[in-house]
Simulated scan of single mutants.
Amino acid sequence: AGFFGGISPIFMILQFPFPILSAIFVFLGIWVLYSEMMLMKGWIWPFFKKKTSSNVFGIIKPTGDVKFRIIFEGHTDSAKEMNIASYPPKLGKWIAIIGLYFLVHTIIFSLWKFILQIIGGPSIILYDSAIISWTIIDLIYFLSLIVIYPFFIWLLKGFLGKTVVLGANDNLAATAVALAIGKYLKQNRPKNVEIWIGSQGSEEVGDKGAGAFVEKYGEQGILDNSYTVVLECCGAAEAMAIIEKDMHRAIYDKEINSLLDEAYNAAKAENPDILKLKKVNLKIGACDACQYIH
């Protein structure tokens, strides 16, 4: 997405009809970003290095025959810290605003030049050759780009990073909670309910670990009669949250959420000081649960 947006100004100075490609490349970049982040298409995955990751699970057998399964999982991998996280808040805000405005700026001027090349003719041209058509619009566009474009590059660099965070909150704390649940249920085995406790790999790069897990055990029918509780970011918060919908358009199971809500109310009756619980629709953010839903 950043690549398509970054090269979009190249087409602005060309002869008609090529300046429209600047807007097209920006829209293409936006579509790639949306389809990867929101729709999980995975079109760009072949361009990245491949390495091996692992999912680790333990199974607690019930008393009696297995008639149902409940899966509790966290994830083991952690993300790289984005450079933008180290920017002062006000600076980061302005980098984002001006950097994103570059895309809007390019779309507006690309369409403007394209239309005026049709209806304005030679009146807007300052320099003309076989390939280049330098116009008043280009002059205004590129002069403003002297300020705007560096912010776009700065924004792109802000989403990169080399330092891998330890992942205590996201998401080893959740894995620890899953293990604690497993320890309790190992000592208090439920009747006819098999418990799976574990931690997925490769959550931070498209929930691939959970995707592989669902593909493998879904084909075997193991997930057909089961609940999955995906635990996320359990290490630091002012409240607990039950997710109802995430940015991947995944709608979380109302039956499972209702049972979790019921369990919370029972726990709160015994311990009124526990963290508050809220219901959340995530505009930005998701977890492995989307793989089980989709």
Rank of each mutant, 00 (worst) to 15 (best):
I70D: 02
I284T: 06
T52A: 12
V280P: 10
A180S: 13
E255F: 08
S202A: 14
I97V: 00
I181W: 07
L100C: 08
Y127M: 07
G167R: 06
A96H: 03
L160S: 15
Y184C: 01
A237S: 05
Y101D: 10
A79S: 13
W196N: 15
L156R: 08
D77F: 10
I118Y: 09
K162A: 12
A85C: 05
I24N: 06
E244A: 09
K67H: 14
T135G: 06
V66N: 05
P62E: 00
S86Q: 13
I137H: 10
G120A: 01
V280Q: 09
Y217N: 10
V193N: 14
N265Y: 00
S54Q: 10
G201H: 07
K80H: 11
A289R: 03
L172T: 14
I153H: 07
F102Q: 15
D77I: 01
L103K: 03
L185K: 05
V32D: 01
G2C: 02
K208C: 02
E255M: 03
I95D: 02
I256Q: 11
L259I: 09
L155I: 06
T228W: 07
G218F: 12
V26E: 04
L160C: 12
K186E: 11
G201P: 09
E244R: 07
G198Y: 03
I107W: 05
I95G: 04
T63G: 08
S78F: 10
N271D: 13
D253L: 08
N192S: 11
V32L: 13
S133I: 03
I136H: 12
F4Q: 04
S258A: 15
A176I: 04
M40Y: 03
W45E: 14
L260S: 03
N192K: 10
I256A: 15
L172P: 14
G198N: 04
A180W: 01
L116S: 15
Y141R: 09
I60W: 10
P9F: 04
D170L: 08
A263T: 03
S78I: 09
F25A: 08
P150M: 09
W134N: 11
M247Y: 11
K90S: 10
A1M: 06
T175C: 14
G42H: 01
F68N: 06
F159C: 01
G64M: 06
W134L: 12
F27N: 04
I131Y: 10
A241K: 08
S35H: 02
K49V: 01
E238F: 00
W94H: 07
T163S: 07
Y127K: 12
I59H: 13
A1W: 04
K254A: 15
I84F: 06
S202D: 10
S258F: 09
A1T: 00
K268V: 01
D77S: 07
G158Y: 00
S199Q: 04
Q15T: 05
V280H: 11
A23F: 05
I256K: 11
K283N: 12
R189G: 00
Y34L: 07
M12L: 12
P122V: 02
L39A: 00
A266C: 09
S86D: 12
N188Y: 03
L282H: 09
I242N: 05
D261C: 01
Y101L: 14
T52H: 10
F114W: 15
M82E: 01
D288C: 13
A178K: 13
F16E: 01
Y87P: 10
V165P: 09
F102E: 14
L39N: 01
G58M: 00
